[in-house]
């Protein structure tokens, strides 16, 4: 240790220590989870399992309801993303392009859903959903998720639409394109990075949403995060670790595929008032 300290110099040495702490802090839990998921023989509070095996993977994958929840979550996330694109893109475009009375209020109203404690909104929604027979239905869960994602889906694409100059749309009208064609061939492609980022957030947000899914979806709709609650409560840590890793896979894959779109610029454009 002494050799290292004097070899690197004080500054470098401290930097290395800081880096090590950081790595441990960020990747330690992840790594721990990964080792636990492949544990054969494990006793709490040990750091490393005594033996390794795939027995907890077998166990989780043999539970029908859990495997089903993986499918449910993926389908749900896709439906939520598509539906909120359909709802929010026109709204985002309107906010970006037209100045109308109360535009600021409309923009802020999308923030409101994120400003209140979630559980409060969910319970209020549950009361209404009971009357509409939406409790325990797939549609109900989709609606709950959209409430969460609306802010991203309106703000970020709206910022992206604003970077498209009005002349670029007008030129397209001028050479003979209808307003629909202008939107799909000119405006959308130019705003694409913002739309991709917003969709990504929506998809990932829907994948990990648990509270609303639990309250509205149970007992009929089981998503991965709501299942995870059950797994953690009633099974050993090792089973939870396996399930958590399965939940992580789609997120990591998406982040890798779309990383070039994940720029600070796309985000900050969305949050300019």
């Amino acid at each position: 240790m002494k050799r290292l300290y004097y070899g690197l110099g004080k500054r470098k040495f401290l930097e290395w220590i800081l880096l090590a702490v950081f790595l441990l802090f960020f990747y330690g839990p992840l790594f721990h989870m990964l080792t636990l998921s492949f544990a054969g023989d494990y006793e709490y509070p040990d750091a490393v399992p005594h033996t390794f095996s795939l027995k907890w993977w077998d166990y989780i994958l043999s539970k029908g309801q859990m495997v089903e929840s993986i499918g449910t979550s993926l389908v749900l996330a896709i439906v939520v993303t598509v539906v909120s694109l359909l709802i929010c893109l026109p709204a985002a475009y309107a906010i970006a392009r037209y100045s109308f009375k109360g535009r600021g209020m409309v923009r802020l109203s999308f923030l409101l859903t994120n400003a209140f404690p979630k559980m409060g909104i969910y319970t209020a929604m549950a009361v209404i959903f009971y009357k509409l027979n939406l409790m325990g239905t797939f549609v109900g869960v989709v609606l709950v998720h959209i409430v969460n994602t609306m802010m991203f889906m309106v703000w970020i694409p709206s910022g992206a639409f604003r970077t498209v100059h009005i002349q670029q749309e007008e030129s397209a009208r001028d050479v003979g394109a209808s307003s629909m064609r202008v939107f799909f061939k000119i405006t959308m492609p130019m705003a694409w990075p913002g739309i991709v980022v917003a969709s990504l957030y929506t998809f990932l947000g829907s994948m990990e949403e648990a509270q609303g899914s639990l309250l509205i979806g149970l007992p009929n709709v089981h998503t991965m995060p709501s299942e995870l609650y059950g797994v953690i409560m009633s099974f050993p840590d090792t089973a939870g670790a396996v399930f958590a890793i399965i939940l992580l896979i789609p997120s990591i894959l998406l982040l890798i595929v779309f990383r070039k779109y994940l720029s600070a610029e796309a985000l900050s454009n969305g949050f300019k008032m």
Binding site: H165, Q167, Q168, E170, S171, A172, R173, D174, V175, G176, A177, S178, K185, I186, P189, M190, W192
Partner: peptide, 27 residues
């Protein structure tokens, strides 16, 4: 505008940056 036989050129931002010159002209 799309039904009028007029052609307009603006001060700036006329071209669509995600298309090549050829694609711009072919639109």
């Amino acid at each position: 505008p799309e039904k009028r036989p007029t052609g307009m050129v603006f001060q700036s931002y006329n071209l669509w940056p995600h298309m090549t010159v050829y694609e711009n002209m072919a639109f």
